[in-house]
């Protein structure tokens, strides 16, 4: 059987595609920024002296990392609405994403912190740096710099995971595609276009992380040494 591809039928929808892509990027940016903060906090908590704190954070991280995102988002979105809390869909999406990004980031950042040699900290102490300075400049920044590649590929994976938000009817790229294909009956074409858009966003993110790395780390390294 021969199938006639008809990408022309999708042309009237270009604005929808674009707005879907923008929504995907927005969800990603918000959840990465907030999630990164939570992840760093959790990484610090994982190394804390307080056993209870370590345990609580550990349970959070393991629970998130060992269950599927789609189940988490159903749990949160349908769960909350079942007890009468109606969250806007995008807010619920970002909320679920943040929880995820936080847990994954925490593990990566912790690995980075563990890789800082104790002698570095001793050297900083010998120089008379304050505890906070040591944490920021000797442990945290070098740790993040070291795991920066893992972090950025994790964030790209998280961006791809936002497509799952379509399952609670979020109007991001995949959600938009689901609507368009049911209007046009051009499912295959629609998903091909969307796949290309995702690849474009992936490259965009790679480029952004590359640029960010160039800007962020040389400068901060100097700052760290200058303290």
């Amino acid at each position: 059987m021969h199938y006639q591809f008809d990408f022309g039928a999708l042309l009237p929808y270009w604005q929808s595609f674009l707005s879907g892509a923008l929504t995907t990027i927005e969800i990603t940016v918000f959840s990465v920024i907030i999630g990164l903060g939570i992840g760093i906090a959790c990484a610090i908590a994982r190394r804390s002296q307080v056993a209870v704190l370590r345990a609580v954070v550990g349970v959070y991280i393991e629970a998130v990392r060992n269950t599927p995102f789609i189940v988490q988002i159903f749990f949160i979105f349908f769960g909350l609405s079942s007890v009468g809390i109606r969250m806007p869909i995008i807010a619920a999406s970002v909320f679920a994403m943040v929880i995820n990004v936080g847990a994954y980031t925490a593990e990566i950042v912790r690995a980075g912190m563990d890789s800082i040699h104790p002698s570095q900290i001793e050297a900083a102490q010998a120089l008379g740096l304050s505890k906070f300075q040591i944490y920021r400049d000797i442990i945290m920044l070098p740790a993040i710099e070291r795991v920066y590649p893992s972090l950025s590929s994790q964030f790209i994976l998280m961006m791809l995971a936002t497509s799952i938000c379509s399952q609670i009817s979020a109007e991001e790229l995949t959600g938009v595609a689901n609507n368009i294909q049911s209007n046009t009956f051009r499912s295959l074409e629609t998903y091909f276009v969307v796949a290309l858009l995702y690849i474009a966003i992936t490259y965009l993110m790679r480029a952004a992380f590359f640029g960010l790395g160039l800007i962020a780390f040389p400068r901060r390294r100097r700052l760290g040494l200058g303290v």
């Binding site: 995971a161 497509s163 799952i164 998903y191 490259y203």
Partner: peptide, 24 residues
Amino acid sequence: IQIVQGTPLLIQMFILYFGLGVFG
């Protein structure tokens, strides 16, 4: 690898599902 790792699994599933359907 770049195509597969640059697109969501969900989209891959849809493409496969509709793709197989389209070709009968």
